[in-house]
Amino acid sequence: MTSPVEWQKSTFSGGGEGNDCVEVATTPGTIHLRESDAPSIQLTTTPASLARLLRHIRSTEA
């Protein structure tokens, strides 16, 4: 598996340089997510799977 090279901080994360943010990186065919305070723990998924999850979350919001 190819390791992500460049992590980007989510625009929805808190401001500043603290460790309270979600970061995302991509490699061919995959999306990697991690919390900045635990960078060794990563969630890896495909764009299609993440899109399905987000659609489901949005459709069930109260």
Rank of each mutant, 00 (worst) to 15 (best):
R52K: 08
H56L: 10
T30M: 12
T30Y: 10
G16W: 15
V24C: 12
S49G: 08
A25K: 09
F12R: 15
I41G: 08
N19P: 06
A62Q: 11
G29V: 04
E61A: 08
T26C: 10
L53Q: 01
T26E: 12
L43Q: 01
P39A: 07
A51R: 11
R52I: 05
T11F: 13
R58C: 04
R55V: 01
Q42V: 12
P28H: 05
E61F: 01
V24S: 08
R52Y: 00
T26Y: 03
T27N: 05
R52W: 01
A25V: 12
L43G: 01
P4C: 11
S3R: 08
A38Q: 07
T2P: 15
G18M: 06
T44V: 06
R58I: 00
W7H: 10
I31A: 08
S3P: 02
L53P: 00
G18S: 15
L50F: 05
F12Q: 13
D20E: 14
G14Y: 14
T27G: 07
S10V: 10
K9L: 10
H56G: 07
G16S: 14
E23W: 11
P4V: 11
H56D: 05
G14P: 03
Q42A: 03
T46V: 02
I31R: 07
S59R: 11
D37A: 13
A48G: 02
A25H: 08
V24D: 02
T27K: 07
A25G: 10
T45F: 00
A62H: 12
I41C: 09
W7A: 12
D37S: 13
M1G: 13
A62F: 10
P39F: 04
T27L: 05
Q42L: 01
A38M: 03
T45L: 05
V24F: 09
A38S: 10
N19V: 14
P28F: 01
I57C: 11
P47C: 00
I41E: 02
R34L: 09
G18V: 14
E6N: 11
P28C: 02
L50G: 01
C21G: 12
A25R: 08
T45S: 03
T27C: 08
A38L: 06
A62D: 05
S36P: 00
L43E: 00
G15I: 15
A51H: 09
I31T: 06
E61P: 00
S49Y: 00
V24N: 04
N19R: 15
T46K: 04
A25T: 09
R52T: 03
S10M: 10
V22Q: 12
T60S: 09
G18R: 14
R34A: 09
L33F: 13
P39H: 04
M1N: 04
T11H: 15
L33R: 07
T30I: 00
S10N: 11
G16Q: 13
A48E: 06
V22N: 11
T26P: 06
D20Q: 14
L50K: 03
N19Y: 06
N19D: 15
S13D: 07
I31K: 07
D20S: 15
D20A: 15
S13L: 08
I41D: 03
E35D: 14
G16D: 12
I57G: 01
K9P: 07
P47F: 00
M1W: 02
Q8Y: 12
T44I: 02
R34T: 04
I41M: 04
A62I: 14
S49Q: 06
G14M: 10
E6S: 09
T46R: 04
A48Y: 02
R55H: 04
L33S: 03
S59C: 01
V5Y: 10
